[in-house]
């Protein structure tokens, strides 16, 4: 009797646990169902390779190449800032900072990682953009450069925490062995710790990229919003996330525009999915390599 109830409870928990899988599956299905009908209007090549995005014109143009490139360049720019600063600060925190310094800085970094993106976006719009416009003497402050800059700063705490986790996995004995051979701390760091943590750090970078690609509000407010292929750092762009956020409110349900926006969502989803899978694979192998099960 007890036996049976136990099994029922266990299955109940199993079903609830499956909800995550169900939601992920649901998201995939919805994106395909709502996104695929766009191919009634355009071919795949015209969609992805098309250089013109005028979804509400007559006749409309559904080329999302400008949006993809917008996301691409903003992400590259942001990573140029986030990777050195994030990993540098993680190394500082983990390898150099004293115990007390660490006890203060670590929670501060965690706290900063929680600042909402809308706040960054707002700051970028009202302070940073006008400031850069004056400083660099450029026509518009809301541009690729500003968006990359603010996104990069925003991603620093994330990359930093993830990289620090990776450093945590490097066994103390590695460092001790190096010190015992007469290496100083910098040599130990460069020759032993960083190579050992290498794939863990690359996981941090990949997850950072995935986060930036999916970031919406900041680029919506700061990137300028012009759906054209940028020719310089100081031109406005319209990344994929910003396009969805800005246009979904006005798209007529069931129209080509509507399906196109879902199609962009699908592409975004697949990109981040692939990045996450890669990160997970590297991460798992990394932990095994350093002798941590699970």
């Amino acid at each position: 009797m007890k036996f049976k109830t136990e099994n029922i409870i266990k299955s109940g928990f199993g079903v609830l646990a499956f909800s995550s899988l169900l939601f992920l599956f649901g998201i995939t299905v919805i994106l395909f169902k709502e996104g695929l009908p766009i191919f009634k209007y355009v071919k795949l090549f015209e969609l992805i390779g098309g250089k013109l995005w005028y979804p509400t014109y007559d006749p409309p143009d559904f080329g999302i190449l400008p949006l993809i490139l917008g996301t691409f360049w903003v992400t590259i720019g942001a990573m140029l800032i986030a990777v050195p600063l994030g990993i540098g600060s993680a190394l500082y925190l983990h390898e150099i900072a004293g115990y007390r310094e660490r006890a203060i800085l670590k929670p501060v970094i965690e706290l900063l990682a929680g600042i909402p993106s809308i706040v960054y976006g707002f700051f970028g719009m009202v302070i940073l953009a006008p400031f850069l416009q004056r400083l660099l003497n450029i026509p518009i402050g809301l541009c690729l450069f500003t968006a990359s800059f603010i996104l990069g700063i925003m991603a620093v705490p994330t990359v930093s925490s993830l990289a620090e986790d990776a450093l945590d996995y490097v066994p103390k004995s590695f460092r001790e062995a190096s010190f015992a051979l007469g290496a100083n701390r910098w040599q130990t760091l460069v020759k032993v710790v960083i190579p050992a943590a290498g794939s863990g750090i690359s996981t941090a970078i990949i997850l950072g990229v995935s986060r930036i690609v999916g970031e919406t509000m900041t680029v919506l407010m700061v990137a300028g919003g012009a759906a054209v292929i940028p020719k310089s750092l100081f031109e406005p762009v319209r990344p994929m996330t910003a396009t969805i956020a800005a246009e979904m409110g006005e798209a007529v349900v069931g129209s080509a525009h509507y399906h196109d926006l879902f199609g962009i969502g699908l592409i975004l989803f697949l990109i981040t999915l692939i990045f996450n899978m890669i990160a997970e694979m590297i991460g798992r192998r990394y932990r095994l390599k350093l002798g941590h099960g699970r």
Partner: peptide
């Protein structure tokens, strides 16, 4: 890891 705007969709 799913972007927040995709949750919105």
């Amino acid at each position: 890891g799913v972007p927040s705007v995709v949750f919105g969709l």
